[in-house]
Write a protein that binds this DNA or RNA. Structure first.
Length: 683
DNA sequence: GTTCTAGAAC
DNA sequence: GTTCTAGAAC
């Protein structure tokens, strides 16, 4: 991030230039707030006062009132202030934001949303080493605070919000604030907010998900004439609403009109197809939304689409048009689109003018490299999703995490594959192009939803909406070959008498055995004996009887174990993508007390959406003909969270010492539909 | 699936 | 120095 000289305080008033800044740090203990303040105060030539609640009482912790008092006196002296306290929820921040009522100031938020494990380990360090207990205490404090966090929003009254998710982000933000003199300031708006880099920190998904639908943006029902200055980006219907910030954190696809510019597709027909496809998809993209973007207010396509969408009563919160540069939607238009579509050429090459040149240009060489990894060319009517590396400026400045390249039909005789006037073919290709684009966007949304659901609450209802999408993209996966070590279960299923290692029951349809490396006190596998069902993705409606048998046998064994030990709790389910060949049901006690549970993958394979409860699998197969799979690798690298209280832990040993003592009740979704089996439920 | 181990993190 | 993770080999 850097300061853009052109955007530095363009109002020109001398007084304005000396406006102090109230910089509110937002972050858990250990997120680096004090380090941030120290650095800024050391290098900045602007006069800063640090308002730190931890030390405000003569070096000891003080009160919020003391912080406010110091803030007031400092502002009166014309000094800028750094509010160094957690400020994680809206209420905690509001008193400091209200300082703008009595002082002429800009209110900034600097969000230090670093991985929970990092904050915890830093807190542990700070509180001293007094054995493991101290670590547990620090984790508990950080976890408790993180439960409360609410992402700051512009509409709380901030002039500017800077989000930091890793040390690099923090360094950039420190440099930025450190470079401020008493006269320059930073442009307003929301910067760096991201929703999708879940591999870095899955925990933020829940944080960002709690957003309201956009309130003010509507696709106008009346045909107003647009008189707004063409250089000002904003919702295309009304200039007055430009000041209203868009809600960020909602998965949003910004897309240009395909084929109408360079490829000379008829605008009337194109607008009809856009609206038709939007209508078809608008309810298939979860809480996501679609935004048609065009650079100029005079654009015919926008007004045609707008009026057609209004006639069809398409929800204006889910679909609207927007005037602005598709490569600067966040920085100039304050509209965060985590996904943008590119009107690509068939060679997927940069340059050539128009949207394609602009996007490749703004994204830097990273996009070209990432694109080449995916494909070398594109057929008309198709699209391809390219995850944007975080090093790309489009990612860091605009919050774009994916670019979807789309190729529409060509009606321009000067370009290759021209359809001339064959609109029958042309319309079909254009429809295909939008279908492919919106499907690709839907898969991105689905993956994000699944990850955020996994972070505590499960949105079964929402998942149901995605029926059809994920499966399609996932089924494209080529079946992996099984390694020699992965055949053990298969061999046992086929010849249990020969390979009887650990086998405890042999029936016609299933074999039951103790897991050779149990991940809990009790851990058995119920293996299907039929040939041809290697894994969950092979399961279809015809396998419902075997699923039911496996479930019944698994339940019987769980009950047997519960008679021996009433304190156990069992869960029955399948791995979305098993390592061992031959469909097998895990019957596993929820203590996870085992020396064989050694790494993140072991934990997450039983404690993330990757683990599919047997009851849900049976229901899905009977309703949809096949089970849902959550086989994204991301689930394996998720933060380590307690299966009961959902607290985060920095590593496996810490997690294990926590779960050994955690007595919290299980999350709600596990308590429903018989997903968990207790002694009391059966006695 | 596990084991082994380099090297990152503490 | 020790602990812990993650990738390769099996």
């Amino acid at each position: 991030m850097e300061i853009d000289d052109e955007t530095i305080n363009s109002t020109g008033e001398e007084e304005d230039k000396k406006k102090p800044i109230v910089a509110i740090l937002v972050g858990a203990p250990g997120s680096g707030k004090s380090t941030f303040c120290d650095h800024v105060m050391r290098v900045s030539t602007r006069p800063w006062v640090r308002v730190c609640q931890d030390t405000i009482g003569n070096g000891k912790p003080g009160t919020k009132a003391q912080c406010l008092a110091l803030s007031n006196t400092s502002l009166k002296e014309g000094k800028s202030i750094l509010i160094d306290r957690c400020n994680l929820d809206k209420e905690q921040r509001s008193d400091f934001i209200n300082l703008k009522n009595s002082h002429k100031v800009d209110i900034h938020a600097i969000v230090l949303d670093l991985p929970a494990k990092l904050c915890i380990s830093r807190s542990v360090k700070r509180t001293g080493h007094e054995g493991n207990l101290q670590g547990g205490k620090a984790a508990a404090v950080v976890n408790r605070m993180l439960q409360k966090k609410e992402s700051p929003k512009i509409n709380e009254g901030f002039t500017r919000i800077t989000f930091c998710y890793n040390e690099n982000d923090v360094q950039s933000a420190m440099d930025m604030y450190g470079s401020l003199s008493s006269v320059n300031t930073l442009p307003g708006g929301c910067f760096g907010e991201k929703k999708t880099d879940s591999k870095v920190q899955v925990g933020i998904m829940k944080f960002l998900k709690r957003v309201d639908p956009p309130s003010k943006v509507t696709s106008d029902k009346t045909d107003k004439t647009d008189k707004t200055d063409e250089t000002t980006p904003g919702p295309s219907n009304d200039g007055e609403e430009e000041k209203v910030p868009f809600e960020n954190g909602i998965p949003t696809l910004g897309f240009p009109s395909i084929s109408t510019a360079d490829f000379q597709f008829n605008i009337e027909k194109a607008s009809e197809i856009i609206v038709e496809k939007v209508e078809e998809f608008v309810n298939k993209i979860g809480n996501g939304r679609l935004v048609l973007v065009d650079l100029s207010h005079g654009s015919k396509i926008l007004s045609l689409v707008k009026s057609k969408a209004a006639k069809k009563n398409i929800d204006p919160k889910k679909f609207f048009t927007f005037v602005g540069d598709i490569t600067k939607l966040q920085s100039q238009g304050r509209l965060n689109c985590n996904v943008i579509a590119n009107a690509a050429n068939w060679r997927l090459k940069p340059g050539g003018g128009g949207v394609n040149a602009a996007i490749f240009d703004a994204a830097g060489p990273d996009l070209d490299t990432a694109t080449k990894k995916q494909a070398g060319s594109l057929s008309p009517g198709t699209s391809i999703t390219v995850p944007l590396p975080s090093t790309s400026p489009l990612f860091s400045k605009e919050g774009v995490t994916h670019v979807i390249h789309v190729l529409g039909p060509n009606m321009n005789p000067k370009r290759p594959n021209c359809l001339k006037d064959d609109y029958q073919k042309g319309c079909k290709v254009l429809r295909d192009a939008y279908t492919s684009l919106f499907e690709n966007f839907a898969s991105i949304v689905t993956i994000q939803e699944k990850i955020s659901d996994s972070d505590g609450d499960v949105g079964t209802e929402r998942n149901k909406k995605f029926k059809g999408f994920t499966e399609e993209s996932e089924s494209k996966k080529v079946n992996k070959e099984w390694g020699s070590w992965a055949q053990a279960l298969y061999k046992i299923a086929m010849h249990p008498e020969k390979h009887g290692n650990g086998v405890i029951e042999i029936l016609d349809d299933v074999v039951v055995l103790n897991d050779v490396y149990p991940k809990a006190q009790k851990h058995v596998l119920v293996v299907a004996r039929a040939e041809g069902v290697d894994r969950l993705s092979d399961v279809r409606e015809e396998h419902l009887p075997i699923l039911r048998t496996m479930h019944a046998v698994g339940m019987k064994w769980a009950e047997t174990f519960l008679k021996e030990n009433e304190s156990l709790i069992f869960r029955l389910g399948y791995h979305s993508e098993p390592s061992m060949r031959q469909l097998h049901l895990h019957v596993i006690s929820q203590d996870f007390d085992s020396k064989h549970l050694k790494n993140k993958k072991h934990w997450n394979s039983f404690n993330s959406p990757f683990f599919r409860d047997s009851v849900d699998v049976m229901q899905e197969v009977s309703e949809d003909g096949k089970p849902k799979l959550n086989d994204d690798e991301k689930f394996m690298s998720m933060e380590l969270r307690c299966n009961r209280c959902r607290s985060a832990h920095p590593n496996i040993p810490r997690l294990k010492s926590h779960i050994a003592i955690c007595k919290s009740p299980f999350p709600d979704h596990l308590l429903q539909n018989g997903r968990l089996l207790h002694a009391s439920t059966k006695l």
